[in-house]
Design a protein around this nucleic acid. Structure first.
Length: 130
DNA sequence: GAATTGACGGGGC
DNA sequence: AGCCCCGCCAATT
């Protein structure tokens, strides 16, 4: 049985991902940061790679991409789903994280589920004035 | 038990 | 931008 990551941790990772609103995205690393418990980006990737069929309809796996705004799987399907949600892409096919990055769970939700909120980042992210 | 791998990330150059 | 190296941690070989 490949229940490698404790079921509770897997469920927690899925639970956090379920909080990402449509039209927004997060990264593997940030999900891990929220989950805490010694998890890291690779583990989040592992969790999604082994996402059970019965969870696919409720876990918005497509909203988790890498820090470069690139769809790690290269999946055209994933890209379509994001486009349909209104996620902005640049000319090079990368998600414009500066415009649609999920800010993480509310302090209240985080406290209720014993997870972390995203540390305030002072986005040096240039808001390109197109 | 060691080495490799992976839907990763940060930092340096 | 690109490239490279290192840390991370569980699963697999």
């Amino acid at each position: 049985m490949n229940q490698t990551i404790p079921a509770s941790l897997l469920e927690l990772i899925y639970l956090v991902i379920e909080q990402i609103p449509s039209g927004q995205v997060s990264t593997y690393g940030e999900i891990a940061q929220i989950v805490g418990r010694g998890s890291d980006g690779r583990m989040v990737g592992k969790a999604l790679a082994s996402l059970p069929k019965e969870h696919q309809h409720k876990v918005p796996w497509q909203r988790v991409i890498n820090r470069e705004g690139v769809i790690s799987t290269g999946s055209a399907r994933q890209r379509e789903l994001l486009l349909a949600e209104g996620v902005p892409f640049d000319a090079q096919g990368r998600v414009i994280l500066a415009r649609c990055r999920w800010r993480g769970p509310s302090p209240k939700w985080a406290a209720e589920h014993m997870v972390q909120t995203l540390a305030e980042r002072e986005e040096g992210e240039q808001l390109s004035l197109f």
